[in-house]
Design a protein around this nucleic acid. Structure first.
Lengths: 133, 133
DNA sequence: TTGCGTGCAAAGGTTTTGCATGGCA
DNA sequence: TGCCATGCAAAACCTTTGCACGCAA
């Protein structure tokens, strides 16, 4: 599937679920289950194929979290190129932040360590305020 | 396998290979192949079981790189708790750095964003100097 | 009508598990 | 000798693929 040409019921509902869960991680299986629960049953191959297409086109980020076997997918809204991602390793929540200190650090790494950090790929793991108690 | 109790030929050789490749990523399959090439054949389950034990005990870091199906393993030498990891997404090389700016950033996140970053888990992805040309 | 999209089932690859045997302490 | 560790094969899992049918444009 090189490009996305048609709009279908399946793709609409997959996108709708991805939007509803835009702040959490979803595996392909999770997504598949949510679709069935909503009565909008979609074949597993379709889920995988569409997720792959969306990943290739850049609309979705695919990543893996430690201790989880299957890949996670998350809608990459347009602003994601300019900000940074924190992910709580307890609850899985993804926090999008815009932070000058982070920007400075990236510059520091480029100039002093000759390493060009790719923030679209990088996720900082840790524990969020809610899970810290 | 809760703890590691015995020393065996298999475990010695697995550790030796891990040490030899401490600056590169190795999949379980890679490790298995290297062992056979050295004439120190070890069963695949043993490789997986020992890697899991080492990961649990913290001697080895397990992670995945984008575009690669199988998990990667790398020896986590004792200093890894106090420094940071950069990984080149082109060549897979892992760079261990000790960096004050990074330390400051972690403090900044904790105080201003109420997020406690776990550097043992976090890897900054990007492109290293060698791959940048 | 055309050709992309879908669903099923099967294949593919990685990792885990059960069980009998082997080997360290 | 008593357990733990190993190896094989099978199972479990996640993901991809082949193919016939369905459906958007």
């Amino acid at each position: 599937m090189a490009e996305i040409k048609y709009n279908t019921r399946q793709r609409d509902t997959i996108l709708r679920v991805l939007k509803a869960y835009k702040d959490r991680h979803l595996t392909a299986e999770d997504l598949y289950d949510r679709l069935r629960q909503n009565g909008c049953s979609v074949g597993k191959s379709t889920v995988y194929r569409y997720l792959e297409a969306l990943t290739t086109s850049g609309s979705v980020r695919k990543y893996s979290i430690p201790g989880l076997k299957s890949a996670c997918y998350q809608l990459a809204d347009s602003g994601c190129a300019e900000h940074y991602h924190l992910q709580c390793s307890r609850c899985g929540k993804v926090i999008h932040i815009d932070c000058n200190e982070m920007r400075q650090l990236i510059q520091h790494f480029e100039q002093q360590h000759h390493f060009r950090i790719d923030m679209a790929r990088t996720v900082l793991y840790g524990v969020c305020a809610d899970c810290e108690e």
